[in-house]
Simulated assay, not measured.
Amino acid sequence: MKKEGKSCIALFASGSGSNVQAIAEAVQTGEIPAHIALLVCDQPDAYVIKRAEQLNIPVFSFRAKEYASKAEFEQEIVHRLREAGVDFIFLAGYMRLIGETLLHAYRGKIVNIHPSLLPAFPGKDAIGQAFNAQVKIAGVTVHFVDEGMDTGPIIDQESVRMAEDETRESLQRKIQEVEHELYPRVIKKLLTEAVMEGITE
């Protein structure tokens, strides 16, 4: 649902939500032409929910184990997304694979950020994987979501050089700094193009 030339978006997260904060701040300043209609969180105790409340973002939180299947809780999510008029979904530390139900409803409109230069180090703890592999270059990838684990088409990437005295913690800080700049920039570009296409169709 477009609102005064703005896309309606949902953010998905499972943890502290630093990327949610960065995106929300870019929305507030007008850098990102969007309205955040919903935060979806699969961990009702996650700190990101407090962030959302402070930012006046509506929240749907759930526990997967309380549903009979992935399809069942994704049907509930899709219902809430459609009710809120959501156009695009941006995963910001959401630690679940997106299933068929959500993919079918929002194919081509679900985007994820991953803390590695994909296809290197997909899956969990990508920063730890890169650090343990002692690579010289780590990084961040923004990509569309498909059925696989971090396998969708890449939209943009940015590298992070590993220092000789790098620690796991210092690498994570450097990668998060890049994420907080790259993701809002990519989201702005995607949504600006989407609104323009909507105007010209």
Rank of each mutant, 00 (worst) to 15 (best):
S170L: 03
Q43F: 10
Q28T: 10
L97Q: 13
G139R: 11
A105T: 02
V140Y: 12
A64G: 01
I187M: 12
D150I: 10
G152Y: 12
A64C: 10
P115L: 07
L117K: 05
G148C: 09
I49S: 03
S7I: 02
G17Q: 03
R168T: 01
E169F: 05
S16G: 15
D165A: 14
E158H: 11
K2I: 14
S159Y: 10
E76N: 05
R161W: 05
Y106Q: 01
F131A: 07
G108Y: 09
A68K: 14
I49V: 11
F131T: 09
K50R: 15
I187Q: 07
H114M: 07
Q176H: 15
S18R: 08
V40E: 07
R185Q: 12
E201V: 07
I49C: 05
I32M: 02
Y94D: 01
H79K: 15
K70R: 15
L102W: 00
F131V: 08
L91Q: 07
P33K: 02
I57T: 03
D150Y: 13
V195C: 08
I113G: 04
N56W: 12
F12R: 11
M149K: 08
K136H: 13
V20H: 04
H114F: 09
A133P: 00
S18E: 04
F62E: 08
R82K: 15
G152M: 06
E66Q: 13
Y106N: 00
L103N: 00
G15A: 03
L38R: 00
C41R: 06
E181H: 14
A133I: 00
L39N: 07
E72M: 09
K2G: 06
L91N: 08
E181A: 13
E76H: 02
M1Y: 03
Q134E: 11
I110H: 03
A46L: 13
M196F: 13
K188L: 01
F131R: 05
T101K: 06
K109R: 15
R80F: 04
E147I: 13
L38W: 04
F88H: 14
G30L: 00
V142M: 04
P58R: 11
K65P: 00
P58D: 09
I175S: 02
N112D: 05
V86N: 03
A68G: 11
F90V: 12
G93K: 01
P153C: 06
K50A: 14
F121Y: 15
L190R: 02
T29S: 14
I110K: 01
K189Y: 08
L55E: 11
S170A: 08
S7W: 04
K174F: 00
A22D: 07
A84I: 06
T167F: 06
R63E: 11
G148Q: 05
S14H: 04
V20F: 12
G30N: 01
H143R: 08
V186D: 00
K136A: 14
E158F: 02
E66G: 02
I23E: 02
I77G: 01
